[in-house]
Simulated assay, not measured.
Amino acid sequence: MDPLHWLRQGDAVTQASALLLLAMSVASWVVILWKVRVMHRAGADVPRCTAAFWQAPSLSAAASQIEAFDREALVLPLVGAANSVAKSERAETLAARGSAEQQLTRVLRDALHGVLGRLQFGQVLLATVGSTAPFVGLLGTVWGIYHALTTIAGAGQITIDRVAGPVGEALVMTAAGLAVAIPAVLAYNVFGRLIGRIEADLEGFARDLRELLLDAPAAD
Results as ranks from 00 to 15, higher is better:
Ala91Arg: 15
Ala91Cys: 12
Ala91Gly: 14
Ala91Asp: 07
Glu92Ser: 11
Thr93Ile: 11
Leu94Pro: 03
Gln103Glu: 05
Arg106Phe: 15
Val107Ile: 13
Val107Met: 08
Val107Cys: 09
Ala111Phe: 06
Val115Gln: 04
Leu116Tyr: 07
Arg118His: 14
Leu119Ile: 06
Gln120Leu: 13
Phe121Asp: 12
Leu125Asn: 11
Val129Pro: 03
Gly130Met: 01
Gly130Pro: 00
Thr132Val: 15
Thr132Ile: 15
Ala133His: 07
Pro134Ile: 00
Pro134Gln: 01
Pro134His: 02
Gly137Thr: 08
Leu138Pro: 03
Gly140Ser: 07
Gly140Ala: 07
Val142Asp: 02
Ile145Thr: 04
Ile145Phe: 04
Ile145Glu: 03
Ala153Met: 12
Gly154Ile: 11
Gly154Glu: 09
Gly154Lys: 13
Gly154Trp: 09
Thr159Arg: 09
Ile160Leu: 14
Val163Asn: 02
Gly165Met: 13
Gly165Leu: 14
Val167Asn: 01
Glu169Gly: 01
Glu169Asn: 13
Ala170Tyr: 01
Leu171Cys: 03
Leu171Asp: 05
Leu171Glu: 02
Met173Gln: 09
Thr174Asp: 05
Gly177Phe: 05
Gly177Ile: 05
Val180Asp: 02
Ala181Asp: 10
Pro183Tyr: 06
Ala184Ile: 06
Leu186Pro: 01
Ala187Pro: 03
Val190Arg: 14
Val190Lys: 02
Phe191Glu: 05
Phe191Tyr: 09
Gly192Ala: 11
Gly196His: 12
Arg197Lys: 12
Ala200Phe: 11
Asp201His: 14
Leu202Pro: 04
Gly204Glu: 08
Phe205Lys: 01
Asp208Ala: 14
Arg210Ser: 07
Arg210Met: 07
Leu212Val: 03
Leu213Thr: 04
Asp215Arg: 15
Ala216Arg: 15
Pro217Arg: 07
